[in-house]
Design a protein around this nucleic acid. Structure first.
Length: 433
DNA sequence: TCTGGGGTCCTAGGACCC
DNA sequence: TCTGGGGTCCTAGGACCC
């Protein structure tokens, strides 16, 4: 039996944990650049706020309804996530961390009362981290996901908990699960299925294998089996090695200055290089791309990318920045207002399996010693304190906008809360609290 | 004016091999 | 008039996830 656990409105809930003044209040969290709403709690939903909509259309409404707004604070969410996962690990023999706010785990052998187990999981996480979760259980991952969905909508056996432990409940819950809400059915597939009069998960399981495979590929077929109760997906206890590592962020303002774009790119490439070193991988291929703002109908649009195999696989920030910079020179066209530049490292290899170059002697040791020192300095004194010269002197002119960020309560000593007597006080709390 | 970021997997089609 | 078969590798694009 597999359990699926996820935190309700994770980002919004993280913001609320350290702000008792916001408990029971509507809270939303914004995407990078404060562009869109990417998380909202039940109170904000109840006020009619919608996920994914651009903020510039909603500011007025948000102010009028006194919704509390936060920029995303990944230092906080990442740390809270780790605490949740560590808590779940105390209640299961096997855990798969599926995303920042979700996990699959094995229900321990010999558990008779699934409902009680689900409540235990919920209570422990709530007590240890302050975060609310829902727990779904079923014989396959997809069914555990459906069960979780149902737990959220209150169709479970007790609040926040829902086991699928018989064919009767399986059928009943699949019938209550809209086709759009099935894990693996996105917007396009849902549309196509609706055209075939398939409106819920149960009807999906009644389609022929041939049709499903033809229109939804083998992935869809696998999903159908999972929903029928035959597990197709194993619990992945150790995270798979990354196949690509990249970063691509919108600028705070649109740019036409190639020098600033080079700075931003060098910064992103350095982040990617650091991740490569953390994960002990060398990149054999680098891809750089640029984009203008596709929403601006009044401006000419341009997007393009270049991908290049590296002569020698590397994780050295300097080499990667240099290659990427030349690629950007080729991509840049004057006369456009650029919104985004991005970079992906791919064809990642383990250092010991690296193919040597016939003509260039390896300089690996120097490079890795220098990069090692750079990483150490930065981990001690702060991100990018030591960096490639090309990046980041005029960062204010391109970095993303984050005007509503909460403190890094759990990972930065200078930002933790202070508590005096029975009042919670912090310079970050709003004045009316 | 302002519209996210970081990924994975699958398929089709073209280029190429003998 | 009639122009093969079996295979690999690569890329682009589309779908999905959180």
């Amino acid at each position: 039996m597999i359990a699926h656990i996820d935190v309700n409105s994770f980002y919004a809930s993280c913001e609320q944990v350290f702000r008792p003044d916001l408990w029971e209040k509507p809270v939303v969290v914004l995407s990078n650049n404060d562009g869109c709403i990417i998380a909202l709690n039940a109170q904000a939903k109840a006020q009619g706020i919608k996920m994914g909509r651009p903020m510039h259309e909603q500011w007025e409404e948000v102010r009028k309804k006194k919704i509390h707004v936060f920029s995303s604070n990944y230092a906080l969410y990442g740390d809270m996530s780790q605490r949740v996962m560590e808590t779940i690990a105390t209640l299961t023999p096997a855990l798969e961390v599926y995303s920042i706010d979700e996990a699959f785990c094995e229900v321990p052998e010999g558990i008779q009362d699934l409902d009680a187990y689900g409540r235990d999981v919920h209570n422990r996480i709530h007590q240890w981290t302050g975060l609310p979760v829902c727990v779904g259980m079923g014989p396959s991952k997809a069914l555990a996901k459906v069960a979780n969905r149902m737990a959220k909508s209150g169709a479970g056996s007790s609040p926040r908990v829902c086991p699928i432990d018989s064919d009767v409940t399986r059928k009943a819950l699949l019938q209550r699960c809209d086709i759009e809400d099935v894990w693996g059915i996105g917007r396009k597939h849902a549309q196509r299925l609706r055209q075939r009069k398939v409106t819920n998960a149960w009807e999906f399981t009644q389609l022929s294998d041939a049709w499903v495979q033809k229109h939804l590929t083998v992935v869809g077929l696998r999903l159908k089996r999972e929903l029928e109760g035959t597990p197709q997906l194993k619990l992945e206890e150790s995270p798979a090695a990354k196949k690509m590592i990249g970063t691509a962020k919108s600028f705070g303002h649109n740019l036409d200055d190639p020098g600033l774009m080079q700075e931003a790119l060098a910064w992103y490439v350095s982040e990617v290089a650091q991740k490569l070193r953390e994960q002990n991988r060398l990149a054999c291929r680098l891809t750089v791309f640029v984009e203008t703002n596709r929403f601006r109908k009044d401006r000419p649009q341009y997007c393009n990318q270049i991908s290049q195999r590296l002569p020698i696989p590397t994780q050295d920030s300097r080499q990667l920045v240099q290659v990427a910079s030349t690629m950007l020179d080729h991509l840049y066209r004057p006369g456009f207002l650029y919104k985004k530049v991005g970079v992906w490292a791919s064809e990642l290899v383990v250092p010991s399996f690296t193919q040597l170059h016939l003509f260039e002697p390896p300089k690996k040791q120097q490079s890795s010693a220098l990069m090692g020192i750079m990483d150490q300095v930065n981990s001690r004194y702060g991100k990018a304190k030591l960096r490639v010269a090309r990046s980041g002197y005029r960062r204010a002119e391109w970095k993303l906008k984050q005007e509503h960020c909460s403190p890094r309560f759990t990972t930065q000593l200078s930002e933790i809360m202070t508590i005096r007597g029975n009042t919670v006080s912090s310079k970050y709390l709003s004045h009316d609290s």
